[in-house]
Design a protein around this nucleic acid. Structure first.
Length: 883
RNA sequence: GGGCGAUUAGCGCAGCGGUAGCGCAGCAGCUUUACACGCUGUGGGUCGGGGGUUCGAAUCCCUCAUCGCCCACCA
């Protein structure tokens, strides 16, 4: 027999089996298969991204689901791929080119040259995250890997655009959009993050003008603003129509300071008379609310801030070309100098930031493409009525709220990296098609929002619009695993696209993971330096350890507080499993055949029942996506039950030639089941052990050769099996009682001051008959030299004694007995028991309890009281004996 | 301003109407022939506060507080 290492060494094992799985095509999904289908599409990571702990969480869950489905006999597709991630990728590449000194701005290269550079970048960095997912053990069907800018995929995107255009759902319009002045592109509402900021609320005086347009000395209108620089583009001052204070001002004009422009005082419902002075400056081109008012009152739209965030010529000589923040300062100074600023109070408000560039967004008037969402009603209904289920369910509220207030989607981006909008123009003509209509036509220069391609992901990856076998077999997909932060960006939109183009939902279940935080509850971020590299963790602890550690601490729907200690625990756990199997392998002896029911001892029955319970609970937990519970059940089964109790007790049976073979058969049975239960969580080590222990032989060669991946998922032991093997409550209870004896006995050693290593003799006065095996097991579990059954044993005074349900256990001390210590222990114990008695009695003495509580509860309490009283009597007697 | 979630042992969580549990950390003792990535034992909580319903509440209802998310055009 080859030497088995004492500690599990993941590195080589992981490489070996991943290659084996790939070579054996274990991950391949066959659309022609007769088996029922199970499918997941991966949330495509950014093509140039690297693996984060968030990916680890998300993809481990998907891998568990996929591996579980395969073992349960489903034809399983986990479809992988990457997203071109428009802004993110373009920004990264541009930054890198700048850093290399190649360019200062992408304009220097021009569109085609720049795109070449991005593709180069993509080729170089594009595969990294995919390789990292492989290290994690992801069982994706890599042959089907897709990229949102693959030629076929791009065609899908453009065809969908063309279709929606012809349906009249896509239109172009000049609107106020969220503008990112750093990336110089429009953004959707979802890409804007509101950040609370401490700023100022400036109060300015605008001079009132007379009919001739001259300032009336001493008469002013007071306005307040957080954005002084926009006043250069003011076109009105607004008050509420029914505000008595200003009724007489409506229709008059003010002279806009710094610009010396006459602008009207208008009345608009939008103004809140209770806020500030009740007068609002109106900048129609630079504020969404003001824009609305501007439209209603037909005000000019003077643009004073340009696309790059600098002031335009319209802002006037003095301010043109100034950055908007510099202009703010300049305007304030100027107005202050003119005596028109009355105060600047501290003010906390929320400012929209670009999620990508992390700069304040600018409301900006520009021509953009918009989509009026299709299939809204169906998509709303599907989630509201459980046709698509969200886990945890509460996210459906968020979804429904958004769907109920849905606004048109700004889908055009002023970027180069992405799907170019299939619109062609010549003079006043416009055509919507993929290819150029011919000479003299130029294509719209905008590209589409990244999400306009990802919303097609569940079917565009499977060959749509062709009716492929993959679509027939695997659409709609079964589960989607993603974060709640992209519920609007992606989940909602996929649902709508699914209904619109497939006439069917894209997935049945959506599992929303939590967000990974550090142990202080902070989000992972590069700047905080609290974001560990998963690859380092895999290298140090192994992929299985990382997976198990993360799953152990990921409760459904709650954020995950990551602590490296969890990964360490995962490693320890793998090592425990390794050594449990190592123990079996060191026993030699071939894998035996059937378990002989006649030879089963109490421990065998007990562990088989524990296995049965674990399978039942695990199946239940996984059905409800409770992965942390599942991990805990596995932990308990292997560590707390199999290793701590069963294997130790089994050492007794293994020493008995008559029982040995049968015990080995039980061990093998339990281990074989355990490895399979563990496999979705920790695939590498389980495959290594499965193969190493020869369990493969149990299975016929099937799909992808012999592997634990296609071993069948354990089912709870059925009733016949349990009856045949005598597995019943009494059997379990018996061992529980016997183990109580062991625990108590271990305690006696301690009070007797016996060193853990020292072998001692116990005497046992049984109330329940124990077999020779049971006595032997107790002896081993107690590390005793011997345990002697003496029904009528009279213990000498001061003998540490444990009164158990099964009988009384004595540890006769040779020589010195620490009577004091034993007395102290018993007194403490007695007090505890007394407290329980008091509690029970108090309850039972309450007349309304005994009258109104159900008889079963009453009886239970009475029984409890009786038990405690009996225990009390025993302890008291022992204590009295010591004196 | 609306909505959602959390609040149980030092930390992370389970329990969701009938004796407060698990893991880790802590403490004490152990090279017991699978594992020190280990073994054994053990201390620790008036279940965020206050009210209510009930024979009985961590669990149901109301209310307050703290923390965290999401949504909303108060300049």
């Amino acid at each position: 027999m080859p030497e088995i290492p004492k500690a599990y060494e993941p590195r080589a094992v992981e490489e070996k089996w991943y290659r084996f799985w790939l070579d054996s095509k274990c991950f391949a999904a066959d659309p022609q298969s007769a088996k029922p289908a199970y499918s997941i599409v991966i949330p495509p990571p950014n093509v140039t991204g690297v693996l984060t702990l968030g990916h680890v969480l998300n993809n481990t869950i998907q891998d568990i689901l996929a591996r579980l489905a395969r073992m349960k006999g489903f034809e399983t597709l986990w479809l992988p791929g990457t997203d071109h991630a428009g802004i993110a990728t373009q920004t990264v590449v541009e930054k890198s080119l700048r850093k290399q000194g190649v360019i200062k701005h992408r304009d220097e290269l021009g569109r085609d040259k720049f795109l070449e550079k991005v593709w180069e970048w993509k080729e170089k960095h594009g595969g990294i995250i995919i390789e990292q997912l492989k290290r994690l053990g992801a069982s994706c069907d890599w042959e089907r890997e897709r990229f949102t800018m693959d030629p076929e995929y791009s065609r899908c995107v453009q065809n969908v655009f063309i279709d929606l255009y012809h349906k009249g759902l896509i239109y172009r319009g000049k609107r106020m959009v969220n503008w990112d002045p750093s990336a110089r592109t429009a953004l959707s509402d979802e890409e804007v993050e509101m950040v609370e900021e401490r700023g100022k609320l400036w109060h300015f005086k605008y001079p009132l003008a007379d009919d001739a347009g001259r300032a009336v000395p001493g008469e002013f209108v007071m306005v307040a603003t957080t954005r002084p620089e926009t006043m250069l583009g003011d076109e009105a001052v607004a008050v509420h129509p029914s505000d008595p204070r200003y009724a007489n001002l409506i229709g008059r004009r003010v002279l806009l300071p710094l610009r010396d422009k006459l602008i009207p005082i208008i009345a608009d419902e939008l103004v809140d008379p209770k806020f500030g002075t009740g007068c609002v400056k109106v900048t129609p081109a630079h504020d969404p609310a003001d824009y609305e008012m501007g439209m209603r009152h037909q005000l000019p739209m003077t643009v004073v801030i340009a696309a790059d965030g600098r002031m335009s010529a319209e802002a006037g000589e003095e301010f043109a070309r100034l950055d908007r923040m510099e202009a703010r300062k300049a305007v304030v100074e100027k107005l202050e100098a003119l005596g028109l600023m009355t105060k600047a109070e501290d003010y906390t408000h929320r400012v929209g930031y670009s999620q990508r560039s992390n700069v304040p967004i600018e409301p900006y008037l520009s021509s953009q493409w918009f989509l009026k969402y299709p299939a809204v009603e169906k998509s709303t209904h599907a989630v509201a009525h459980g046709e698509i289920r969200f886990h945890p369910e509460r996210w459906s509220k968020t979804y429904l709220h958004w769907m109920g207030n849905i606004k048109d989607w700004c889908i055009s981006r002023q970027l180069w990296w992405g799907h170019r909008i299939p619109i062609w123009r010549r003079d006043d003509e416009e055509k919507c098609q993929i290819e150029s209509p011919g000479e003299g036509w130029t294509q719209d220069s905008d590209v589409l929002d990244t999400w306009f391609s990802s919303w097609l992901w569940p079917f565009a990856t499977m060959g749509w619009p062709q009716e492929t076998s993959a679509l027939k077999k695997f659409y709609p997909t079964t589960d989607l695993v993603t974060g709640p932060d992209i519920i609007f960006f992606w989940v909602a939109r996929m649902i709508m696209a699914g209904y619109e183009y497939m006439g069917e939902k894209p997935f049945q279940n959506v599992y929303f993971t939590g967000i990974i935080r550090d142990k202080q509850g902070r989000k992972m971020s590069k700047s905080l330096g609290n974001s560990p590299d998963p690859l380092d963790l895999i290298n140090q602890y192994g992929a299985d350890a990382l997976r198990f550690g993360v799953m152990r601490s990921a409760p459904l729907g709650q954020d995950v507080l990551y602590d490296e200690q969890q990964v360490e625990l995962g490693r320890n756990f793998c090592n425990k499993l390794w050594n449990a199997c190592r123990f079996r392998q060191m026993q030699a002896g071939e894998v035996e055949g059937e378990i002989d029911p006649a030879k089963l001892n109490a421990d065998d029955k007990w562990i088989l029942l524990k296995l049965h319970a674990a399978i039942t609970e695990l199946t239940e937990a996984l059905d409800h996506y409770k992965f942390n519970e599942a991990a805990q059940i596995l932990h308990r089964l292997l560590w707390g039950e199999f290793c701590d109790w069963y294997l130790e007790a089994a050492k007794a049976a293994l020493a008995d030639p008559a029982a040995r073979d049968n015990t080995l058969a039980v061990i093998d049975f339990v281990l074989s089941n355990t490895l399979r239960l563990f496999h979705p969580f920790i695939p590498f080590i389980t495959e290594e052990l499965w193969q190493g222990m020869g369990f493969n032989a149990e299975l016929p060669a099937g799909q992808g050769g012999q592997t634990i991946m296609y071993a069948h998922w354990p089912k709870p032991l059925d009733e016949d099996f349990r009856a045949h093997y005598g597995l019943n409550d009494a059997a379990a209870k018996f061992v529980d009682m016997r183990n109580e004896l062991v625990t108590q006995g271990r305690n006696l050693r301690r009070v007797g001051g016996i060193q853990s290593g020292k072998k001692v003799k116990f005497i046992f006065a049984p109330r329940t008959a124990l077999s020779a095996h049971d006595l032997e097991a107790v002896k081993i579990l107690l590390h005793a030299e011997s345990i002697e059954a003496q029904p009528d044993y009279q213990a000498p005074k001061g003998t540490p004694t444990a009164h158990c349900e099964m009988g009384d256990l004595y540890l006769p001390l040779e020589g010195v007995a620490d009577v004091g210590a034993e007395k102290e222990r018993l007194t403490k114990e007695l007090a505890k028991v007394q407290a329980e008695i008091d509690k029970a009695q108090q309850k039972l003495n309450n007349p309304s309890f005994s009258q109104k509580a159900p008889p079963a509860v009453l009886a239970e309490h009475q029984q409890r009281l009786a038990d405690w009283q009996a225990k009390h009597a025993q302890l008291a007697a022992t204590l009295a004996g010591l004196a």
